[in-house]
Amino acid sequence: MQVIEDPKLLRSEIKKLKQQGELISFIPTMGNLHQGHLTLVKEGQLHAKITIVSIFVNPMQFNNAQDLANYPKTLAEDCAQLKEAGVDIVFTPTPEVIYPNGLNAQTFVEVPGISDSLEGELRPGHFRGVSTIVTKLFNLVQPDFACFGKKDFQQLAVIKQMVLDLAMPIKIIPVETVRENSGLAMSSRNSKLSEAEKLIAPKIAEVMNNIGQNLPTNSENCEQLIKDAQQTLNNSGFKTDEIHIVDPLTFAPLHKASKQAVILMAAFLGNTRLIDNLVVNLHQ
């Protein structure tokens, strides 16, 4: 396995692979890897012989400087896991390499509409940062396939729309959320939870699934379902950040023609923000 920091060297290696006719699967990450990331790697390996993973904590997508500073960095452990998983190349650039002129002078990519609603409204500039770095990484890696987890539901939708709008020759492969035995969605942020918080954390998935069970017969009463869920989470020790029930295609409120709904959850447990989502069929 090669670990490459220099974009020029990466381009050189990619060129060789392309000349050999190899297909490439790509998994962009911010490191601090867990089984969810390794599931993305396994999925990528089903589609292409060559698998490339990037590890880059992207400052452009953080609107909270403290959150960026506290993001866990475990590069040596990450590379050991990726080597064992059979990854071919790990790309580990620094912010200075990716943004040589600084963030304020960086050309950016923004997907209109979807980037400004829900999570985008709560975290201004977040999806601009995501779409910009993913575009830059796609340009460097030139993958045929790219794997993204469904846990970041709105992010996945932004990337799919960006690839479509910019006519990128890349197939985006959504991968199911990997969960702990408790039902909690795996996340790099889970490592920041205290032992006591880890016992409470699965409640977010439990509350989400409860909404999902009630939604098909009660989809006209989303406000009450959300209010009840917020109260349950807050009484359990969470500080609810946002709960949305929207159409998964448009991210607009549900309407009579909506065939599915997506429940989007975000809540703080201590200082850790946990997210989750669930797609529910409304009409059989």
Rank of each mutant, 00 (worst) to 15 (best):
N190D: 06
P143W: 09
F145D: 01
Q142T: 11
F145Q: 15
A157V: 05
F145G: 05
Q142G: 11
M168T: 07
S187F: 13
Q154H: 01
V158F: 03
D144K: 13
Q161R: 15
V178T: 09
R189Q: 04
E180F: 14
R189M: 08
P174W: 04
I159E: 00
N139W: 08
M186N: 02
T177E: 00
Q154L: 02
P169K: 15
I173C: 04
I173G: 03
F153L: 01
L156D: 13
E180S: 15
F145E: 06
I172G: 06
F153Y: 11
L156F: 07
G149D: 00
I172D: 00
K160N: 14
A146H: 03
V178F: 09
R179D: 08
K171C: 14
N190E: 09
L164M: 14
N181W: 05
Q142C: 07
I159M: 02
V163M: 05
S182A: 07
V178I: 05
L164C: 09
A185G: 04
I170L: 02
D144P: 02
A157P: 15
E176F: 03
P169T: 13
Q155H: 07
D165T: 12
D152A: 01
L184V: 12
S188K: 05
L140F: 11
S187L: 01
T177K: 04
C147K: 10
C147A: 07
P169L: 15
F153R: 00
L140R: 11
K171V: 15
I172R: 03
V178R: 06
M168D: 03
I172N: 02
D152L: 03
S182Y: 00
L156H: 11
L166Y: 12
Q142A: 13
M162A: 11
D144R: 08
A185E: 12
P174V: 03
L184S: 06
C147R: 11
S187G: 01
M162L: 15
N181A: 10
E176G: 08
L166T: 10
D144Y: 04
I173D: 01
M162D: 14
Q154K: 01
A185L: 06
N190W: 12
E180T: 08
I170R: 05
E176S: 10
R189F: 13
V178S: 12
S191H: 12
I173K: 15
